[in-house]
Design a binder for these strands. Sequence first.
DNA 1: CCACGGCCTGATTC
DNA 2: AGAATCAGGCCGT
Length: 300
Amino acid sequence: MVTPSAPTEPSGVALLPVSQPLDLAATLQSGQAFRWRPQGEAWSGFLGSEPVSLRQVAAGVEVRSADGARDAMLEALWRYLRLDDDLPAIYRRLRRDPLLVESVDRHSGLRILRQDPWECLVAFICSTQSNLPRISRTQEAIADALGSVTTLDGVVRSAFPTPEAVAGAGEERLRALGLGYRAAFVARTAEAVASGTVDLEALRSAPYADARVRLMALHGVGEKVADCVLLFSMEKLESFPIDRWVRRAVEERYFGGRTVPYATLASWAMETFGPAAGYAQQYMFYGRRLERRGGPPPGP
DNA sequence: CCACGGCCTGATTC
DNA sequence: AGAATCAGGCCGT
């Protein structure tokens, strides 16, 4: 137990046992989440608005948090890491495709996350014509400027701000944080979410196609961004986000190098991989990143 | 329904 | 070195 009189929030540790394949480092650095920072052997970040530190050990994942012993924290982490997915079954499906065999074998334990939809939405609106380091930078800048400050074991970080806080900040303030032309998109989307024009939680339980249409009605959200948000935060594992690299790989391998519309590629993925399409995309994307960088990604 | 130019910003390329 | 070019697209025409 912790001592409540300490000046800084005392932390507790709990173990989440994991028997499923899990590569925590790869998962947190695979371009779906943008606020996990290496901290020695551990990773500093947030589960919702709770600051946590995660460390992979043989038996599973150690979670350090202000209330680390609570079952609710372990449950939250379980959900975040999608340990409810049956990865071996998904791998069997992916391995039917020669394009994926090597990537799946080499990066076993790379998982799709179940993130907070709002934070995920902002991140991917900011992802257009950008790159991983810059997306991380802007997410962090938004949190630092508008989120509430937290402390965990002396590490000071800010939680990601609410839609109301971002809407209140306005376009110019966001632009000053380095969002560029995306500032207007984020501002307008924040207003839509804050005012209840869009209910992100409701989209979570809506069918893929319906949720997708709703998301794409938001400014700055096209097919690719919508598919990312649907996959990484809204339970839609059949979603297959197609960026320029995934597009190139699939067009070269399956369409004789021809340029093919987004919808055609998406339905190809749906037919080929079914409910594992999202995982297929993740392995394609991660595979080509490594190829490009010539080594496993931790960042800069 | 498809094609195209323009867009913040910063890192890399020429 | 300073100028193009490009980056996990999207919007408007």
